[in-house]
Write a protein that binds this DNA or RNA. Structure first.
Lengths: 357, 357
DNA sequence: GGGTTTCATGCAATCGTTTGCATGATCTTA
DNA sequence: TAAGATCATGCAAACGATTGCATGAAACCC
């Protein structure tokens, strides 16, 4: 009787995971396989399975398979303290820079069986509560794409003993490892290109100076010009990395004096904002003024005129950040280091030789 | 003595969360407050706190605050079966449609203290293992932005008894609640606009017909034309929702016979691909041919010419989907319903009166 | 003022895994 | 062949929070 009942159950559950709600635990598997729960636990753990005989291994795996067993991560997390979960903070997920970064992070995480909490931290003041919740959730680590200069968050993370990595924006104090793009090189590429075209009066629409990339790129530009014994004609700081801010800054720049021959923008959106302002002022790109961007976001090759810009390896930025984080989580931590990736110049139609005087 | 010792401890830990690593448990709080753990648990639970006297409440809260206590979600999850966690599957996070949807989801989740696992499911075949891992992770629910027609995933989700909501793409069998945009109305807006401009020969670059939106928009277009006693001049199906596929489809359409006066595209990217193919063929937009898109993704107002398109309330799509999911999780489930949101026509420069014969 | 209700809190079991230690079986070696 | 080494498995105690039930005290009622 009992045997036939079991058979019937098997028929009703032909494949795994077909039960409507499956509270099938390790205990059920142990029972079905006729072994102790600890044996099941070991048999199903990649590290411990070598302790188990092939015979038992087979039986356990078959039983687990048949019952559709999935270990309860919450229980495992409670026991081991590891949740197989990381958190990511981004300032604005709709900014085209971040999706590829997230993609890279997620790819790395998925390959290791990790899940990624993505949080969109609109207001910097909200970052701390988010991190506290992540602490409660016992994430194994966090990746911050939100760091500002002297960010109190870096402090918080360090104090709380979270393992963390910064991406896209570095920590100047070097307390946290980071993966960034080489802003100096990026600006050198842009400047060399413009100087090569014959430009003399080069201006800069700088990013917010409380964000590392804002400062880094401005310094990079100044250095690159210095290498040519030049100085920026003018530098205007944008309120934010947005089209509106770029337009406003460009207007301000035009009002401040004679128009530059070329303007290097901290960011593609800012460059597009500059387009808006220039068009409004009746200036043509690149005939009257050359413009460069930064990031090579999607579609900037479709705008009018197609934007000359700096391409960043965003996906790899994310990937590398995640890999670093996992190394740290697994204990084989490198000394807190900064990885600098190489950007690349993409020449399109927004830059050209300066108009003859 | 004891009292002064406590004071010293307070000084050493001036604020909460300043300990480097804080394995402070509910037991520690109970001890510090001189009560039982169960009392602490109740005092710190919004629902149960009414059971506790004001006096004890104060003491417990003070102790929890002082020690920097954060309940361990893993333990809580194990006991209650609720993880305060949801999963989201998107087909391609770098597609500009999805970030605003994610933003909406995340906003709703954050407001409820939930975290969101975001997974980028490149290959549909990978969706199932991802869902299985989410099952193991014991997420409280999932939001799928990946549904294809007759998606086996919908089956899987239903069978596994997961609470789930679809977003952006509906389930035609109606087994799962969904939040979508009104494709019929969208196509009616586009068609009425073109017909109003005087177009007669209207063609369609259709989306993949294994994706609900691909079919829905094609049917919507045909219906809208029928309302004007017209038929599509020609319909070409795109391989995917991408610029390359759009260009290829447009080339195919031009080869198939006389050029249409206007082409309604299933998607902005496809429309931009059509731009590429048309430019290559020496046709001008909108002078020779009008083009409409769908989604109003960022920057399509900056391309040449600015694209006339349909704006979808993407952020609200995500928000509503999350709200529905939470309602279901909390048990006050509506009957599996589909919420249809209203799109809106954005007229720019890619549509105009047809050229005189 | 004795009996009953109400209230605040304590007790202890439980959720599902993991893992150090114990145990017994098998194998090795002199 | 006895003593030790090796191996596979079982036992049971965690991990930290939640919650039904028990308990004792205070409040209430007639």
């Amino acid at each position: 009787m009992a045997a036939s009942l079991v058979t019937i159950v098997c028929i009703n559950q032909p494949m795994s995971t077909s039960s409507p709600s499956s509270p099938v635990t390790i205990r059920d598997v142990a029972h079905a396989a006729g072994v102790h729960v600890s044996t099941v636990s070991r048999a199903l753990s990649p590290e411990k399975r070598s302790l188990i005989s092939d015979e038992v291994l087979r039986v356990v795996e078959e039983a687990a398979q048949r019952l559709g067993y999935r270990p309860n991560r919450a229980a495992s997390a409670l026991r081991t303290g590891r949740t197989h979960t990381i958190g990511v903070l981004v300032p604005d997920i709709t900014n085209a820079v971040f999706p590829p970064i997230l993609q890279g992070i997620e790819a790395s995480a998925a390959a290791r069986g990790y899940f990624v909490f993505v949080t969109n931290v609109v207001d910097p003041a909200l970052a701390r509560p988010v991190l506290e919740r992540m602490l409660a959730q016992r994430v194994d680590g966090v990746i911050l794409a939100t760091a500002t200069r002297d960010d109190p968050l870096v402090d918080f993370v360090a104090k709380a003993g979270m393992t963390a990595v910064l991406v896209n924006r570095a920590d100047e104090t070097g307390r946290l490892p980071a993966v960034v793009s080489d802003d100096r090189l990026a600006m050198k590429l842009a400047v060399d290109h413009l100087v090569g075209l014959g430009h003399k009066r080069i201006a800069h629409l700088a990013g917010p100076q409380n964000i590392p990339t804002g400062v880094g790129r401005r310094l990079g530009l100044e250095q690159a010009l210095r290498d040519h014994r030049m100085k920026p004609l003018r530098v205007v700081e944008c309120e934010s990395y947005s089209r509106e801010a770029g337009a406003a800054a460009m207007r301000q720049m035009l009002e401040a004096g004679p128009a530059p021959q070329a303007v290097v923008c901290c960011n593609d959106l800012v460059a597009l904002g500059a387009y808006d302002a220039l068009r409004q002022a009746g200036l043509r790109v690149p005939k009257d003024i050359s413009v460069t961007g930064h990031n090579d976001m999607p579609l900037v090759d479709m705008v009018d005129p197609p934007l000359t810009t700096i391409r960043l390896p965003h996906r790899e930025l994310g990937w590398r950040a995640a890999e670093m984080l996992f190394e740290e989580i697994d204990g084989r931590a490198m000394s807190a280091s900064t990885v600098v990736l190489r950007p690349e110049l993409v020449v399109r139609k927004s830059t050209g030789a300066p108009a003859a005087r």
